[in-house]
Design a protein around this nucleic acid. Structure first.
Lengths: 195, 195
DNA sequence: GTCTATATTCGGATAGAC
DNA sequence: GTCTATCCGAATATAGAC
């Protein structure tokens, strides 16, 4: 396959996804028309339908792409080894960094109600990244770092505070970058479940 | 004003709101048409526009009504007195009870992205109920029950876990009623911020 | 205040040339 | 693979009788 052909294909595809992310994160899926995406991406509407089938296909591609990316980062944290505490803390740090570096992505992953426009997707909390975070908590329970609670409950209690802060930041309620709150937030989170 | 006239007016209005809540909570605002509401409420579409102006008006009425109701309950908790710890715990218990008793209301208040369809509303976290919960936390900091953190951060850390659990329950990920997790969830939450 | 019928806009999706 | 022009259904909102 000629390189420039592949390049063009990728370019169009990613131009669409980038535009869609921008618009979905800003006004939401339903307030964004395919015509809006087309205009923003500087691509014809025919191309969008050619690549993604329908509007839902754009959202689905974006969703799975972002989740896979996030899951990859979490996987790397796990592979670095260390205690459950260190891994969980690194996960929170990662989410905070992502929120500051890619607020739109975070907005779309965490803040949107996907089931309203991707009816076949399972709830976000049973997606790969969330499962992986739960696994970290399970490991912590096994190793005795975390109190012997139901893993699902413990994960909610551990990550609930940090996730709440991400929501507040995305809503513009918190003025300062999340990193400035990392130490405090992590301290609180860990106290909640530590032995 | 004749009683039956008032009755009818209230009946129509509340029939519409109940139907709208059902549909909004089930499929979301944008997947619900005014015709759907009309059908579900057994009311003419003209009545809906007469009472609420437009579709957004229905959502707004529902939203403010539910928030006021919730805020009223929280206010009563505050008026009962007691330590900040007791009040905050009562707030969590209230939210858990509401989730089980009125899952649709909770879904609509907590889970929906209101800014997508009520563009003029402030974010939910700056609404009256959330403000009131933050005030409870501030009182706890004043009284020395809670560590001297930024009140916004402390509130997020304290209520983040329980709110996360509510989300999980509404998504059908948790099988058991939230009340069964109240003791554990509160214990974790309080450890996060207690002195 | 409530109803039915209707207007109008808009947005998702397709056709078919290049 | 990309483009433009077009179709068509759906959904919001209104008109106007009762």
């Amino acid at each position: 396959m000629p390189a420039n052909l592949a390049r063009n294909r990728i370019d169009t595809r990613s131009k669409v996804l980038e535009a869609a992310l921008h618009l979905f994160a800003g006004g939401g899926y339903f307030n964004t028309s395919v015509h809006d995406i087309q205009r923003e991406a500087q691509v014809s509407i025919g191309s969008i339908y050619h690549h993604f089938g329908d509007k839902e296909g754009v959202a689905r591609a974006l969703y799975t792409e972002l989740l896979e990316q996030t899951d990859g980062e979490l996987k790397r944290i796990n592979e670095r080894g260390g205690s459950a505490q260190e891994r969980c803390r690194a996960a929170v740090a990662l989410l905070f960094e992502m929120t500051e570096a890619e607020p739109k992505s975070m907005q779309f992953i965490l803040h949107a109600q996907h089931r309203e426009f991707l009816p076949n997707e399972p709830p976000i909390c049973s997606s790969a990244p969330f499962r992986r975070m739960r696994e970290m908590v399970e490991a912590g329970i096994q190793s005795g770092e975390i109190r012997p609670l139901d893993a699902m409950i413990a994960a909610a209690c551990l990550f609930g505070g940090p996730i709440r802060l991400i929501h507040l930041r995305l809503d513009g309620v918190l003025a300062a970058p999340l990193q400035e709150h990392l130490e405090t937030a992590w301290d609180c989170a860990w106290r909640a479940v530590a032995v």
